[in-house]
Nucleic acid binder design. Structure first.
Lengths: 235, 235
DNA sequence: CGTGGGCTTGACCCTTTTCAAGGTTGGTGG
DNA sequence: CCACCAACCTTGAAAAGGGTCAAGCCCACG
């Protein structure tokens, strides 16, 4: 379901707002801007599919995507979300492997496609950029390992509390303490690594314990310290 | 428990046997050789600890280490093993964070310490090396994500079968089809992400089903296709 | 107005964990 | 050389935690 919307223009200067491009020279930036193409994508669009070959990377201007793997029985495991300023798909470009995840738009997005050669050119020509990209990857690896340990050792209840806090860090709360992200119960389950029904039951429990308030997909965090305690989240 | 053994010498030329150093020039290699120091470490030695600051990386000449995270209740989760030719600890050096894992020797090892500056010098001076290191990290990230999905979705039984196959790939079988790695039941449990007792019970079941043979810590793989089937391992 | 997707709840069952107890092994010191 | 200790391995029984199945509800959308 690839719903590529209309082509859009992004000014080269606007690229500099993305951390990853901070260290580029004006020329380098101009080159990136020249070789890239930007498009709008509707919710539900799949940007790339697990197992497909990717020849370039996407930088996210606006919107939100979920990055997930599909288990052998077809169940999704959401690895992370990507949003404004995140670069996705470069892992496969660099390691020269097929995509090991699927990237799907969950909030209408504006994405810029950057060809693989542009990216590898930057890496080879600009050590600072190479270092930054490596830092990014290393951080991601650290996250992934932490998440792995949590899934292996924590109960579903703990993980759900932790995921709510994670969502808070990633998408922030609005002035009423509502998480600024709208996910189906199934998506939530696919982050936590459990069944949809379990998420529903536990959310009800959390509500009964006055930790959260629920309005459809909108979730309000009422008692963050308690969530931290239930999730055994430290540091 | 740091049991640093005697200092040893490694010839610069010998470094080239490690894939990661393949692309270095003679000078670069000489510089690495000059700034590094090599030591023997006994089984049980902890090379670095989760949460500690690391100022350099280690390349493994011989021996085996387990790389693990400690969950909040003290239980280990083994992330991966490292052996001949593997570079460990560079993640933290590069991302400039505290170590997010512990590295512990499980088979007497010869390790060479490479200062962080040497490593970052190479990255900045040699784009090929930067690219290789990035490939390595990206592959590792791919592995980690796959493992995450498995732990989240597969049963303990499936995971144990899969881990046995993983150990086969990593450490190979001897002429009698025995895994060439000796792990405690607890270590096995800490890879699979389960309780020690569960591993013991399932190993017995696998033996009863003629998939493996057990002699203390030595495990012989009798029916690999069946292990693949039980583990739902595809590709 | 009907339909489908998503949400919710209840009941049941199975996998896995936990707790307890006993057995085995290898290494150390007397 | 033997005795002892600690670490590790094994098994059983009970309990919990979660998954699965089934059914009904709600709401948005064509």
């Amino acid at each position: 379901m690839k719903k590529e919307g209309r082509r859009i223009d992004i000014e080269p200067g606007a690229l500099r707002q993305h951390d990853i491009f901070r260290g580029l020279s004006d020329e380098e930036l101009a080159n990136v801007a020249q070789t890239m193409t930007c498009n709008l994508f509707k919710k539900g669009s799949v940007i790339y599919n697990e197992g497909s070959r990717i020849n370039g990377s996407y930088i996210i201007n606006t919107g939100v995507l979920k990055i997930y793997k599909t288990g052998f029985d077809g169940k999704e495991q959401i690895i992370r979300f990507a949003r404004h300023g995140d670069l996705i798909g470069f892992r496969s470009v660099i390691s020269d492997e097929l995509a090991c995840t699927t990237a799907e738009v969950i909030q209408d997005s504006a994405l810029c496609y950057i060809p693989g050669e542009t990216l590898t050119g930057l890496i080879k020509g600009n050590p600072e950029f190479a270092m930054d990209l490596m830092k990014l990857t290393c951080r991601e690896l650290g996250e992934s390992n932490k998440f792995l340990t949590d899934i292996a050792q924590k109960t579903v209840r703990e993980r759900l509390a932790e995921v709510l806090l994670l969502l808070m860090d990633t998408f922030e709360l609005d002035e009423d303490n509502y998480l600024q992200i709208s996910l189906t119960r199934e998506d939530l389950a696919n982050i936590v690594g459990t069944a949809t029904e379990s998420v529903i039951r536990l959310l009800s429990e959390f509500r009964a314990d006055n930790m959260i308030e629920i309005n459809g997909r909108r979730i309000k965090l009422l008692n963050i310290p308690k969530l931290i305690k239930v999730g055994n989240v430290y540091v």
